[in-house]
């Protein structure tokens, strides 16, 4: 492992060269052996009880999380708020509104949320971690930012401080939804009052979508969503990875590349088409992998979900897992 000759490499090498671990091989090897002995020689009865307890806990946690998650009312009518229209840039992340002092940043870490842009049509664009502005699932109405998919309604409050306009935006992430933690606030400063309704969102990812149709009997049929996972290998039939509602509820894969999609918003004869191993969206310019696998006697489809996170934010797509029902 030869460090690079760049200036960064030289500085890192100099800064770290006098440091080494205090742990030794023998203690590490002994711990490894101890762990292995414990792993390999459980009593059969103890092992069964342990497995049962883990499964019970896992299923119980998922059920508990599903039942006990925070659900906000989100069906508010649109009420305009001219003050909020425009671009806002985040300057701080605080526990309470009164914690914010202009010019003094209390959050020690880099702010995840970069910018918000509120449009006249009630939509919200956002950028995260120095990325470009992208479409979000948020809508807004006076004093609230709504996410119908996540079932959150975040309050916002606009204040003038020392001649500048600030917004306190209640950040309702998984910590609030599933762990019942009190939401913190992003503090954003107003940059402009432009209307971003016609803003051309830059796509980071565009796939090749011209593929000939190749038939595949394995893919054809009706499929029902059962999970949403980071990778195909991480799927376990007995445990749900995804705690929230699954937006995509089902697919009908039909003859000649035709496809209909069912979501929580209802069924659509979509602009999606399919070919062997792939589902293509001409509108979004995406070609998503589809892998059909049989696990424990049940046939599943792993559908690579290329949403806005992939197209506009360059994130790695995750997978819907669907079970064949017909």
């Amino acid at each position: 492992m030869k460090p690079s000759n760049s200036d960064i490499g030289i500085v890192l090498e100099k800064a770290l060269e006098h440091h080494s671990q205090s742990i030794e091989f023998e203690s590490t090897w002994n711990r490894h052996l101890t762990n292995n002995r414990q792993a390999y020689k459980p009593k059969k009865q103890t092992a069964m009880i342990l497995v049962a307890a883990i499964m019970f806990f896992a299923i119980g946690s998922v059920a508990y999380a599903g039942l006990m998650r925070n659900v906000d009312k989100t069906d508010y009518p649109f009420i305009n708020d001219p003050q909020v229209i425009g671009k806002w840039e985040s300057v701080d992340f605080v526990e309470k509104i009164n914690d914010f002092i202009p010019g003094k940043i209390s959050c020690k870490e880099k702010l995840y949320l970069g910018t918000l842009a509120f449009t006249k049509q009630g939509k919200v664009l956002a950028s995260v971690e120095n990325g470009n502005l992208a479409i979000t699932a948020f809508n807004w109405t006076k004093d609230k930012v709504l996410n119908k998919q996540e079932k959150t309604a975040s309050e916002y409050l606009i204040k003038e401080i020392n001649g500048s306009t600030y917004m306190y935006f209640e950040w309702k992430s998984g910590d609030y939804i599933f762990r019942n933690m009190k939401p913190y606030y992003y503090v954003l400063k107003k940059v402009d009052s432009d209307d971003y309704s016609n803003y051309k969102v830059k796509a980071i990812n565009e796939d090749k979508i011209e593929y000939p149709f190749i038939d595949d009997n394995q893919m054809k049929g009706k499929w029902e969503s059962v999970d949403f996972v980071k990778t195909i290998d991480s799927f376990k039939p007995e445990v749900n990875s995804w705690r929230g509602d699954l937006y995509l509820t089902g697919l009908s894969v039909m003859e000649n590349g035709q496809l209909t999609v069912t979501t929580t918003k209802g069924e659509s004869s979509s602009s999606l088409t399919w070919t062997k191993g792939m589902i293509i969206s001409r509108g979004d310019k995406t070609a998503s992998k589809c892998e059909v696998k049989e696990i424990n006697g049940t046939v599943y489809m792993f559908f690579e979900w290329k949403s806005g996170d992939y197209i506009y934010r360059g994130m790695t797509p995750e997978y819907y897992v669907l079970k064949k029902i017909e």
Binding site: M1, K2, P3, S4, S6, I8, G9, L12, E13, L16
Partner: peptide, 9 residues
């Protein structure tokens, strides 16, 4: 990425 690229090579 910095440590893996510039230090670990």
């Amino acid at each position: 990425v910095v440590i893996l690229h510039f230090y670990s090579g």
